[in-house]
Design a protein around this nucleic acid. Structure first.
Length: 228
DNA sequence: AAGGAGTACAACCGCCGAGAA
DNA sequence: ATTCTCGGCGGTTGTACTCCT
């Protein structure tokens, strides 16, 4: 929207393409000082010729401490499949349950590897994500679960990210982020609450949709009962 | 060695919702 | 109440890399 026209020199337009190490360093230094968020402000104040969205993406997917790079493990893969079965293409939620992995990475992995892999394994059509999502969003199961667990609304993603950030600090990887730590000091409690609502959500889904065979036709080997 | 096909991943785009002005 | 800005998300594209012929 409007943002893209406000955060860089209108004569030149935003810089696009691969990021240089010097640009990364600018972002890292700024976040060290001021914390995350305010990406447009970051661009303006540092003279970075990137739009705020681009800066944010770079931070979340690449620069953020605690990011696990490299091959997805078998455990992670299994978890992704199960979570995708449950949540559809809600990559940020899925990523929120896999420490160190980003939504972009999981999305890419799904689109490039898992789709094909599962297709080959099952000799079935590619999962119809839209249908899965529709099932989830329209079902009484999700409505009830979401009511009990408000984390599932749009704002939850933010809370998940907060969780992530605290988690990252806990990992002790990379830089210390005073600005983030200062935002709130309840990391452990948040973590516990986060796990609690998630467990409740899973239980709610399982309770309500025991007859929901609609969740299973694509991958017969995956059953909700096998979750966790 | 060359080049075409397939794959993996980084980055961009468009839309949406929240909050501020 | 309306408009604008910003952050966040999922979908899509671009490109570098690898493999195969």
């Amino acid at each position: 929207m409007g943002e893209s026209s406000t955060c860089y020199d209108k004569n030149e337009g935003p810089k696009k393409g691969a990021w240089a190490a010097s640009e990364d360093q600018i972002v890292i230094d700024y976040v060290k000082k001021h914390g995350v968020g305010k990406w447009g402000k970051l661009s303006r104040e540092t003279g970075l010729k990137r739009c705020g969205k681009s800066v944010r993406l770079r931070w979340l997917n690449y620069l953020r401490p605690g990011i696990v790079r490299g091959n997805i493990t078998e455990d992670e893969e299994e978890l992704i499949i199960r979570l995708h079965k449950l949540l559809g293409n809600r990559w940020s939620l899925i990523a929120g349950r896999i420490p160190g992995r980003t939504d972009n990475e999981i999305k890419n992995y799904w689109n490039s590897c898992l789709k094909r892999k599962l297709q080959q394994q099952n000799h079935l059509a590619v999962p119809r994500n839209e249908e899965i999502r529709e099932d989830l969003s329209s079902s009484a199961a999700v409505a009830a679960a979401a009511e009990k667990n408000p984390h599932l609304t749009g704002n939850n993603v933010n809370e998940d990210e907060d969780y992530h950030q605290h988690h990252d600090v806990d990992f002790g990887v990379g830089i210390e982020f005073e600005a983030i730590d200062n935002n709130n000091g309840t990391g452990d409690d948040e973590h516990l609450r986060d796990d609690l609502w998630w467990n409740n959500f899973i239980m709610d889904l399982n309770d309500i949709q025991l007859d929901a065979s609609e969740f299973q036709p694509d991958f017969p080997e995956i059953r909700l009962g096998n979750l966790w």
